[in-house]
Design a protein around this nucleic acid. Structure first.
Lengths: 229, 229, 229, 229
DNA sequence: TATGAATGAGTTTTCATTCAT
DNA sequence: AATGAATGAAAACTCATTCAT
């Protein structure tokens, strides 16, 4: 290892779980994860076209050759990065256990989670933005992507259905539309923070507005969803 | 002229100032506008790093050399494109005459305009997205940018103040926050339509959801703004 | 005239001698001289390949078109500049009237003049340097160049002959060699002042060493020429 | 290898360090040296702006890409060339062992060496000339340059001091001035040979005047330095 | 005569990828 | 598995010169 990897997740620097046989000299999984971490940072910071393979390789604990060995090409590496970050958020969404809560409480929880996740994972927001600049042509090739997303829809559908049944939510809202409405605000204040800062002199995703914004989006969505008698 | 330029400004389709005598061979304004139009399309489609100066020049009525003659560099051209598209939306915003309407009506109008503009001007949305990938470092250099944006804030401030005075709006909402909330949805459904389509199999900015989404965002924002007694 | 020309020679800014008919609107001679002055500065500062036609034209009172009109090409302009600066020094050499002085006195005078001229006319020194980088291929085409130089040789030949006849100078020195020896020092301390400054931290052509160097070269050359009995 | 490289350093003709097993395919030192040799010729012949990266690369055993790989840019390569040629002369100067000789003998030796070096290394003379056209802005950035030059000054200082102590040299001569006087002639007859040839029809650095000039400069400098009682 | 606009060939530089050790 | 060196195609940019008004 050339130098300590400043990986996004500290875990990536930990020795691999090879058990009792001690530290292995070459650890393929460790190497792959290291490359993926650095690539995530670099693609997120520079975009797909803007990122440089040399720059990624240099910050890695290994060499350019390994990058091609494991991921085939710059685009292959980019796809792997995308799959990983999308997988992360969907996995967490699963762990919310919204089915155990009252509909309003569950919606509140879901909005809060979405807000916090975007607020915290700027790399994810940037990568999604970048992928849209490329018309999503890379994530479209992912086999697991669609499957994973359908579970979110199911979650929201259930949530709405229970709210409607309980007489608390209006019954004319499409679950994907609701998801869109929630994501929009959470995503936008992070994704567009730079032009927003330039325009109005204030970072909309900065710490000073975090709590206020979080409440705002919960307020607005709940107000919108509540049945108007 | 190869024709077919979907110019950002309607004015660009107007005949050159020489009147009815047909196309002038030496028309710098026309040349600049032509370059700018094509560049808007190309940067919007490919991003700053992805766009090719050669590709832009080829679709132009003139040569690559003129592009450098008028705009100095690829980045200079990109900046000019950004300035123009931002100028366009801000100019139209001022023509809404919101001050002549009732507060609720004015807010409805403003949301509707914002929705329609983003829905229609996908180039603008993409360019803003791209600029955020570059951390807004190009638009930050624009001298006119901040000044132009301050007028929107003023507009919204007035609108809120009148609504609060009339007892219709809550009085604890920051104008920039309100603007952010409105923009978020209008922007997001266009900007992220590709990943959204890939994830859920449906274009959130497509014609089938347009009217529904328009109503949704107006509903949600008005619900949020209305004073809760 | 766009702006006052900061010509090297103040004379170039004076109105042309068109006599009583007043100021002419277009004065070809004045225009040519203006172009030549600016070009002298620019070629001297940047070299033939380094100088930019646009840069020259911009500092001129006229336009690029006129530059081509009068001088045909960048190289043509450069040749004109060379001819002029070489003409200037040779013309002044003629006015020394060395024939009226004692041989030693005349030699002293000639060395002093050569020293002072190089010390003062750095543009000339630079242009000669530049022309040598181009293997003198431009000045070689000049028709008047050789003729003008032969007069200097004649001057020095006479000077040496008189000194030999008077028993003061050694008789085995070639006039061109003598000229070379004198020029070397006068030229070098100006031409190579930049690398010399970088190497030793002191400008060899600066005012602090001027008088000392002037004396040095006179001393050395006279010592060399004096007959050793 | 295309052969025929008149390398500045004799070492460059030596076999690669792998000994007798013949040419290695991957030999970075050889590649760098090869590029540097060709670049020395090309910059020397054409100047910094006049030289073409393509032309240099073409004469090389490798490609244009490697030139950027090792030297970063055209200017970076030029700087490397400058550093090398300056290093070469300074290195040889140190091998003269002037301290072991009588002052007059040592001075004679030093002048002779300087004369021969300039006479033989025209590339060096041209490159210094070229660097002065650029106001020495490239060599100024060299870290080793000044340090290396200070050793020459020391050498001459010692030489003068010993001559003064022995009552043979005048004691009012600055070492850098003496160095300048010696260099001037040796440099000038080579550097300005083209304009000189054009002016007087005779190459001042040609073989026919070599011996005569060598003696001339030794004579003149020694005459100048000798104490006048 | 004067002037800004236009041009095309050429020049430097970059970058993803592969090879030799 | 690992590494620095090597590559070719393509990209951005420049410049002397000419044209249209």
């Amino acid at each position: 290892m050339k130098k300590g990897s400043k990986a996004a997740t500290p875990a990536s620097a930990a020795p691999s779980p090879t058990g009792s046989e001690g530290r292995r000299k070459y650890d393929p999984e460790e190497t792959k994860r290291n490359i993926l971490d650095i690539a995530t940072q670099e693609f997120s910071a520079m975009g797909l076209t803007g990122a440089r393979v040399d720059a990624i390789a240099e910050r890695t604990n290994t060499t350019k050759r390994m990058l091609y060995y494991y991921f085939g090409s710059k685009e292959g590496l980019y796809e792997a990065v995308l799959e990983q970050v999308y997988g992360d958020i969907r996995a967490l969404e699963q762990e919310l256990h919204l089915a155990d809560m009252e509909p309003e409480e569950a919606l509140r929880e879901f909005i809060g989670f979405t807000f916090d996740y975007h607020d915290k994972h700027r790399d994810f927001v940037r990568l999604v933005t970048i992928e849209n600049v490329h018309s999503a042509k890379y994530i479209e090739q992912s086999k697991t992507f669609k499957a994973r997303n359908s579970t979110v829809v199911k979650t929201i559908e259930d949530l709405i259905a229970r709210g409607v049944a309980a007489g608390r939510f209006r019954d004319d809202v499409d679950p994907i539309d609701l998801h869109l409405m929630i994501s929009s605000f959470c995503f936008h204040r992070v994704a567009n923070r730079h032009t927003w800062s330039a325009a109005f002199g204030r970072d909309p995703s900065g710490p000073r507005s975090r709590a206020r914004h979080r409440e705002m989006v919960i307020d607005a969505v709940l107000c919108f969803m509540r049945r108007e008698d």
